[in-house]
């Protein structure tokens, strides 16, 4: 019966549930580690520029004077290296992919709102250290 080797699999797929998801109705599979797109928390960014230096595709641009953090979504290869290198952990990976674009511009600009905290007075730090 070498002609009907496929029959077993074919019959099984007919009676079993479909292997695919009804996509827009049910969301796609995502795992905790999935790399979707990079998100920034502008209130915590200290504009150190480490993410810009370590970006292999030069998608990130940090302008310290203008307090701007900019990413080109079309250049970004979602490699996770900016997130690993960020000293204040203000970057994180979102599970959803960035949406498809209709025009050629993936630039997204964020205004950094981080305010450097006032340096506490020396006497206070001393007390904190004791506590």
């Amino acid at each position: 019966m070498a002609f009907f080797e496929m029959a077993k699999t074919a019959i099984r797929t007919v009676v079993s549930r479909p292997a695919t998801l009804m996509y827009p109705a049910r969301p796609g599979k995502k795992t905790g580690l999935s790399r979707g797109h990079v998100v920034i928390d502008p209130s915590r960014c200290i504009s150190c520029g480490m993410c810009m230096k370590k970006c292999p595709s030069e998608a990130i641009c940090v302008e310290k004077d203008e307090r701007i953090w900019r990413i080109d979504r079309l250049r970004c290869v979602v490699c996770n290296s900016c997130i690993e290198v960020c000293p204040v952990k203000c970057l994180r990976m979102d599970l959803q992919y960035s949406p498809a674009l209709l025009s050629h511009s993936g630039l997204e600009t964020f205004l950094i709102t981080y305010v450097k905290p006032e340096r506490p007075k020396k006497s206070e730090t001393g007390e904190n250290a004791d506590a």
């Binding site: 810009m52 230096k53 030069e58 998608a59 641009c61 080109d72 250049r75 630039l107």
Partner: peptide, 8 residues
Amino acid sequence: QGEGPCQE
């Protein structure tokens, strides 16, 4: 092409 720390 297009080298630099920032895209522009």
